[in-house]
Design a protein around this nucleic acid. Structure first.
Lengths: 117, 117
DNA sequence: CTATTGTTCTAATTTCACTAGCACAACCGA
DNA sequence: TCGGTTGTGCTAGTGAAATTAGAACAATAG
């Protein structure tokens, strides 16, 4: 399964699902035009409520990463494929952060502060 | 004020406070030995409860970024100064992400997925 | 000694994630 | 056309976590 979830992770389940899809798309494991599992189907596979999956899908739609339509499902958009070139930079950044004993919280805090402007 | 908060940001207030401090320390705006505002004082300035500020301070203590002691307050540790070399890399990464129209959610998702392993 | 500051405690309120079940509308394939 | 699939929308309830509030207490600085 492409998508995994850890209930006691502190991160909301719908956020973990969305994060999995974002990462998979960037990684190229999900190509534009491809369809995500049906919400009901994925919900059962993850032993989670349908609404929780839908919440993740709708967040992804709001970000423009998927196209949601009744009967058709959640289709990955072209936008989701962008940023593949960021992967190496991200890996390098994380590696350096760990080398300097900088936690993920700090790294994420830095990114959130650099973005808005 | 070094620390700002947006109540409707989706991010918990105590997390925003902690994030501000993490970023400020990494940026060098907060040097080791320096003291954070007293909890009661900051709480009033942000129009927030004292416990909320304390929660942020305690999280920072758990991460080793500040030293908490009664009567003395929250003092920035040496550990908080680490990672200054990451700043450029973070800025470059964010810049490239925006150039490619990649949102902050995706960037953060990527980092969270690269960390644990 | 006195004022400051974090610590601890109880308690109430509020917000949000998650679950549950249902009806409905758009879409697809046969 | 028809039947099954899929997201949408709604109401409702539960539980955990965030936030607020107020108080007493212990360590520290001056």
């Amino acid at each position: 399964m492409l998508i995994r979830v850890d209930p006691g992770s502190g991160v909301a389940i719908y956020d973990q699902i969305a994060a999995s899809v974002r990462a998979a798309a960037t990684r190229g494991a999900l190509s534009p035009g491809e369809r995500l599992p049906a919400a009901r189907e994925l919900a059962e596979a993850l032993d989670v409520n349908v609404h929780t999956v839908l919440r993740a899908y709708q967040d992804l739609r709001d970000e423009g990463l998927v196209d949601l339509r009744r009967g058709r499902g959640a289709v990955v958009t072209d936008a989701a494929a962008r940023g593949a070139s960021l992967l190496d930079a991200v890996r390098a950044l994380v590696a350096e952060a760990r080398r300097e004993d900088v936690g993920p919280q700090t790294l994420i805090s830095l990114i959130r502060e650099e973005y808005p402007a």
